[in-house]
Design a protein around this nucleic acid. Sequence first.
RNA 1: GUGGCCAUAGCUCAACUUGGUUAGAGCACAAGAUUGUGGAUCUUGGGGUUGCGGGUUCAAUUCCCGUUGGCCACCCCA
Length: 438
Amino acid sequence: MASQYSSFPGMDDILPGEIEKWQWLEEKTRTAFACWGFNEIRTPLLEPTELFTRSIGETTDIVHKEMYTFKDRGDRNMTLRPEMTASVARAVIQNGLLKTNKFLKLFYTGAMFRAERPQAGRKRQFHQIGAELVNLTREDDPYYADWLIVRVLINFLDYLKIKNLKFRINDLTLINGEQAELVRSKLRKYFESHKSKLDPDSVYRLDKNVLRIFDSKIETTRALIRDVPWNDIAPFSEEFLKLNKLLQEGFEGNVSFEIDRTLVRGLDYYTGVVFEVASSTLGAQDALAGGGRYDRLYEELGSTSTPCTGFSIGMERLLMVLEKNNPTAQSQMSTKSIYFASIFPNDNHAAFLKTVGASRSLTESGFRVIVAEPSPKLGDHLKRASKLGASYTVIRGDQELTEKKWTVKNMMTGDQASIPEGGLLNYLMQNTKELELP
RNA sequence: GUGGCCAUAGCUCAACUUGGUUAGAGCACAAGAUUGUGGAUCUUGGGGUUGCGGGUUCAAUUCCCGUUGGCCACCCCA
């Protein structure tokens, strides 16, 4: 507390005790995306500022008031990435990945930066899990990629056993596509004709960006939004309705489905189907994941036309939901937690190294291992082992050293066994089997 | 960027309303009762410039102002 330096607002340390949850989530992420055939990609935290102004959109809030932008000593304009999609596109173009692959399935996890006022579920340095489908198209099914990306997202959240999710979907093809200007002017005209019922913020948005009116939380404005004559302004296509039917049928009970015409995402590059997943267990910042189709981004960045879709998930928010929703999910870890107690004299370094060697082979087999510093007091070791929630304690002292054995103590029952060197892994595998959840 | 609430030990909080000797408790930490057998109990101990700066006062953790930070909401988004 009396520390001279502290981290910047909204940029938190992740400490031991908390980090295990992150590692657990990252592991699950790798497994889940591998199953769908996605490959991981990592890109730099810093990118040319213009990459984001061009892709996300000059007038969006993210670009004009939330980016960390500065010049380096070579006078280059650099920005800490506020999101990942533009970086992935840049990397794909720069490395010519589409020249050797017809399409790409990519996923990532990493830190993003936005200079917003911190709040529940909102940090300045935050972390996302995301996926992008690049150039994946099917002639017979123009919405195939949209279907797939949503399936991957819902499947992933289901894999983590997250409950009570609200899925919303919309189609921006007309709103952001070729006829964007026409649609927007129709919308403007509609709201203009009811100007007296609009709140002041929305009157301002009328000229600046009509679509942002949909964000309003004022009831009179919301009533107007509900009555927008969508069939005249931007009717849905047959294919989009078919996609919805297909998606809805695949959802299980814990995800609700809703078509939401007011779902207008804040990044300019979206051109088609967009979607969002919200959780009621979060606070005001309830969006857990969001994404959609962006078919013009690659052209915007100087490459050839490349249809894409993707999503990103807020890791902090995901962990918050997991905590409330599924507190037992991460507890599997402790059932395979092994404490190593070395009770030979402090100066027996060779014996200690042997302990570390044994702990490595256990770690490689998926055990969570705690190696304590050597101390002759077994009582202290056992006290710590039980405090740290170890299911087994492996004891090694002068007796074991001369007999070339490990003493293994079951912390639940108190039973002890003497295991020959080399038989430790097998013994623990056998005995922790039943503890594992299916 | 705007607004509301808050700031005391590593953590959770007392004491502040009505200013008054060395700012307390629980948890956690350390040592011992117990030199190779844990979770309990008991004893003891370490730990604080009361976020920071200024003002009022004989006297400020307490009252006032500023500042920094935190939480929550707006805004926006994951």
